[in-house]
Design a protein around this nucleic acid. Sequence first.
DNA 1: TATCAACACTCAAACGGTTTCGTAGCATTT
DNA 2: AAATGCTACGAAACCGTTTGAGTGTTGATA
Lengths: 339, 339
Amino acid sequence: MKKKITLKQIARELEVSISTVSKALKDSGEISKDTKDKIRAFAKMSNYRPNSIALSLKNRQTKNIGVIIPEIVHHFFSTVIKGIQTYANTKGYNLIICVTNESYEKEVINIELLANGSIDGFILAISEETEMKNNFDHLKEITEQGIPLVLFDRVTNEVACDKVIIDDKVGAYKAVKKLIDNGNKKIALLTTASYFSVSKERDRGYRQALLDNNFEINENLILELDHFDMDDTPIEEFFDKQEIDAVLSVNETFGIRAMRVVQRKGLKVPEDISFIGFTDGLLSRYANPRLTTVDQHGGRMGEAAAEMLIEKIESEEENEIYRTEVIKSTLIEGDSTIN
Amino acid sequence: MKKKITLKQIARELEVSISTVSKALKDSGEISKDTKDKIRAFAKMSNYRPNSIALSLKNRQTKNIGVIIPEIVHHFFSTVIKGIQTYANTKGYNLIICVTNESYEKEVINIELLANGSIDGFILAISEETEMKNNFDHLKEITEQGIPLVLFDRVTNEVACDKVIIDDKVGAYKAVKKLIDNGNKKIALLTTASYFSVSKERDRGYRQALLDNNFEINENLILELDHFDMDDTPIEEFFDKQEIDAVLSVNETFGIRAMRVVQRKGLKVPEDISFIGFTDGLLSRYANPRLTTVDQHGGRMGEAAAEMLIEKIESEEENEIYRTEVIKSTLIEGDSTIN
DNA sequence: TATCAACACTCAAACGGTTTCGTAGCATTT
DNA sequence: AAATGCTACGAAACCGTTTGAGTGTTGATA
């Protein structure tokens, strides 16, 4: 087993000083060609690579980005990570990824763990529990410490930092508009509990589109579901108690599940009832029929977030100007709506 | 903005030496109670946390694990990551995740980038291109440098290290056995190009099961597909040219796509034709009918890999004894087979 | 009254690099 | 011959922490 070689060892071996070795490898003009060649040959032979920890300590930068997300087995979030990776890699940054499992405590712990010099900045989507508690002190603290932070998707106004979101409201609006234009009258909304920032925006878009088109808002047409409850009974009851001709779902799974429920009831999609979901993931793509969706462009969000963060990290001045970038959502026409 | 505070600053502020501060915070017996109390109070007040980079340099351990995977927007791999996280977190390790996009070059680069002291060990699934090239020098190199390495899922015998795999062959065998027991006669296999280690094993299990039950192996019943080709024509032709009453697919997507093709042809699943896929992901769960699958237990694989790696990292002796842990796959009965 | 241990600290080296400054040795200028 | 300028290298500080060795003061012991 050949251990990692250091400058010191090279220096001793070649009987020069450590600084000479360092300078030679950096192609400094201070070192003669002969010495340089000798040192470089030896370094190459012994496969020398500078220790990145030592560099981090010296330069006070780690070239690591802390990415904190609520869930990883999740199409949208993994897409965002991919986007972050793509951009970060071109800039020489690595990703330290922590999953909070939607827990407030884990979010706090992970942030504290990384804020001690392990990373140059954070990219984070707020966990459900944190949104519920509405407590963002841990985030304020890192910004106060001067650690750059970019929030994406699940954001809050409480914290002054860069943000990347999609136009959830507009996305929902466009979806409902399409359903209305197709002649649908009873348009339902499948959503999650109302304290989630994204659901809230989508809910707003839904209502706005209805109002703008002279529809009345019927609260009976709005069904709140729980992520973790896999029981379809509430969905069945919802569709049993009233006639519905179109559905907007704030995510993929509710949409797919509802589609199955109505299909089992013998309805045809999209002839009898139309569906539009959020998130253009695998589920939507492989659904039968292919679900029409509002694409959130997770990849682009990730890239945007990474770009904003790295810009902040590498800029000298401490400007306190924060931007919020809005990624445009797109309606992807599948076969669950009439096109 | 309050910058991170260091031992040196505390020392200056309290007019003691750096070592006194350090020792006081570590509750050393060398320091008097009075001084200790004073220092600890100040440290707490100023929210002191030791710089983890400095500690890494000193202790020559980073408490970071490098995880290198071919793809992240992928149910199986993200499940594995989750498993790794779960175990690693309990041991105080963080994850640095790199995605190779199935590229050999990216695999090499990412390994080199992290092998310079950034991580204490690697968990890795070999990229497709690397499997194709059959070149594992970069992996051999890190083991030679004494950096612990655990390979999972996509492994090779060329590299001496710990491994975690599932019993792909047995999984496929059990699946085919079930199809045979259900009375099916024409059992097809949907697979990928043959140089992928996992496909190879699943192929073997398929053949073995057939042979053991006195079936002839008919190469016409085996269809090789490309991941990235979304065109269903080859699948359609495959099912057009012959009668098939059961299908084993080496992944989810081929299975779901084939199921849709035959459903469009008017066949009923599972009455007319049965399907079993590998990977129990969202797609299978939300498919219509719910796909019967061979569950690979990605989470357990991840946990096992993390456990093996951390054990190696934290063990003093350099034993050259390597284990291969085999995770048992389970047949999850959905509605795409007769149960 | 020396001697010695205990106490409560400080010093300095080390981890592996980078970088500023200093200087020995030589050649060139005046 | 003295002053100057280059070249090519070394010494040392620094990043933030740990830790073994060293030190000055006190009180007890022989």
